[in-house]
Nucleic acid binder design. Sequence first.
DNA 1: CTGAAAGCGCTTACAG
DNA 2: CTGAAAGCGCTTACAG
Lengths: 331, 331
Amino acid sequence: MRDVAEATNLSVATVSRHINGSIKLPRDTMERIDSAIQRLNYRPNPHARSLSLGRTESIGVVIPDIANPFFARLAAAVERAAAAYGLGVMLCATLNQKERELDYLQRLARNHVDGLIFVTNRVDDGEVARAINAAKAVVVMDEDVDGTTASKIFADNERGGALAARHLIAAGHRRMAYLGGAASLMSTRERLRGFQSAIDEAGLDPALTAGFFGSYTIAHGLEAARAMLDAPEPPTAVFAASDEIALGVLTVCRDRGIRIGRDLSLVAFDDVGPLDLFDPPLTAIRQDVDSMGWQSVVRMLDAIKGEDHQAAPQRVPVELIVRASVGPPVR
Amino acid sequence: MRDVAEATNLSVATVSRHINGSIKLPRDTMERIDSAIQRLNYRPNPHARSLSLGRTESIGVVIPDIANPFFARLAAAVERAAAAYGLGVMLCATLNQKERELDYLQRLARNHVDGLIFVTNRVDDGEVARAINAAKAVVVMDEDVDGTTASKIFADNERGGALAARHLIAAGHRRMAYLGGAASLMSTRERLRGFQSAIDEAGLDPALTAGFFGSYTIAHGLEAARAMLDAPEPPTAVFAASDEIALGVLTVCRDRGIRIGRDLSLVAFDDVGPLDLFDPPLTAIRQDVDSMGWQSVVRMLDAIKGEDHQAAPQRVPVELIVRASVGPPVR
DNA sequence: CTGAAAGCGCTTACAG
DNA sequence: CTGAAAGCGCTTACAG
C-alpha cells in the first residue's frame, strides 16, 4: 500500500480510505490510485486489516463430518450464503469428538473468525456449552447444545415425526419401530415425540411402538434393524430418524430377502441422499438444508452486529416426500 | 501478551519465545508464564502472528461443489490431513464458475492462506492457469489445468478406463457406450483412452463403442442415456465416467423398465455414493479419495517449504469393485 | 479534502 | 539467558 501511495504522491491514509470506500475522491485522483494498484498488482493483506480492525470477514463452520451427505449439504449451504455476504468460511471437522470441538471453539472463538456456526452430534456434558457461551458470536444449528444462550436453528423435528407416523398409520400400520440416534439427543427425542403424538392422536396403543436408540449411522441402522427383526413380534413399519439409519435397514433387509415397501414399510428422515434411486425409492421426511444454512448465516450476522438474538430457536419446516417404501402391513 | 509479560515481570519477547518453544526457560519461569496465561485467559492473536510471520498456518481448498459427494469426500480427506499437520482449512466453493475460481485464487493466493489445493471441473482458457502459476503454493488435484507448473495429484484414470472395459469385455460385451464429462477434460479423455486401449488389446472393433460427452452430472447422465438407448443399435453395456452420470442412467432405465445388470450392463466411476445400496448394486471403479486428499496436503507442505516439486503428476491407483450391474449381453 | 502518527499484537535480529 | 526496538501492513482519530 505504501508503494501505491508513493506512486501516486498521496498518503497511505488516503489510499486506504479510497480502497475501503470511506471517502469520495475527485475522479482523476481515483483513477490515479486505481491504475497504480493495477500496475503494481497491489493486493491488500487481510491479516493486517484484521489486526487493525479486530475482525476477519470470515466465519467458521464446525461440523462433525463433511463426508456425511447431510453435513456436506449443510456446509455447502452455509458456504453459499456466506459468500453472498462476502464472508469466507473456515471449515472444521470434529469427527464428533469433544476435544476437537473445544479446540475449534478456542482457536476460532478468539479472533480467528468473526463467528462460528456450530453443528454437533454428541451429547454435551456442559464443557462445550461453557465454551460456546464464552465465545462471541455462535449460532447453534441442527442439534442443540444444552444450556447455551446462542441463536439456534433447528428443523421442525417434532412435526417431521408426526408426518411420518401419520403416513404409516394411514397405510394401516399399528406395530411400528422408531430407530433413533442417541436417546438423549434433542433431535432424536423430538422426532420420537412427534411420532408418539400422532399415535396418541389416532387413538392407537403406544406400547406397540418400540424404540431403538444409538447413533445416526449406517452401523447403528444395521444393528437396530437386526434387533428389531429378531424380536418375537417384529414391526410392520419402521421410521428411521436419519438417511444413514435407513441405509442400514435397507442393507439388512436386502440380505434377509425382506422386501421394503411390501414385507416392511420404511420412512427415512433427512432426504439428502439420492433416496429416489434406491431399491425401492424411499419415502422420507425432507429437511430444508438450504434454508437452514442460509438462515444460520443471517443469524450469525445479527450476532456479530451484537443485535440481541431472538430467544426461541428458529424452526425450519420439514416435508413428507412420498415414494415407494410404504405399503399396507403384512401378517 | 503484554499483560502476561507484565504479570510475570518478563518482556513480551521472552513470553513470545516461550510460547513458540524457541527457547528453554528455567522451570519456575516457565511455570510463572504458564500460570499467568491461564489466569489471564490469554489467547494469541493469529492475525498478528500471521502479519509478523508472513504465513498463516492455514490452507485453502477450492472445489466446485461441496454438496457433490465426490468433492465432499475429497474435502473431508484434505481437512483431516491438514488438521493432522496443524493447518486450518479455508473452504471455497466455486460452483464451477471461472469468476469464482479467479476470485479465490486472488483472494487466497495473496496472504490469506499459505497455499491452495485447487480442484476444478472446467476447461480453462488460460486465465486460471496464469493465476495458478502466479500464486505461491498450489497443488492441482483431480482434474488438470492445462499449462500449470504446480504439483499435481490425479487418479489413474487411464487404468480405471481399462479395468472397466476389460470387465465388460470379459462378460461378453462388444457394443458399448462411454458416457463421459466434457470432451476436453483430462479425466474424461484419459478414462476413454484406457477404455479404448483395452478394446484394442482384446482385438475388438473400436467402432462399436459410442461416446457421449457432456458433464459429470445426473442431468447429463439422463440425456446421454436417452440418446444412447434411442440409437438404432443401442449398446449392451455402458461405462459411466462418474457416479452422477451413472445415477442418470439408472433413472432413465428405471423409467423405461430396463433392468440394469440384465437388459443393460453398467460400470460407474468414483464409487463414493452408497452404490452398494442401489438397485441393483452398481459395479464401479473406485477412486482412493482419502489417499488423494492426504497426498495433496503433503505435496502442499513441500510446495510451501519451497522444495522443488516432482515434475510428473502423481497418480493414485484405482480399483474395480464388482457388484451386480454387469451381466452377459442380451440381444 | 488530506496527512502524520499511533496503534492493532505479534516475531526476531541485534545487543548486552 | 533476557530485553528494547523495529517491523509486519493495515485503519482511523485527530489535526490542519
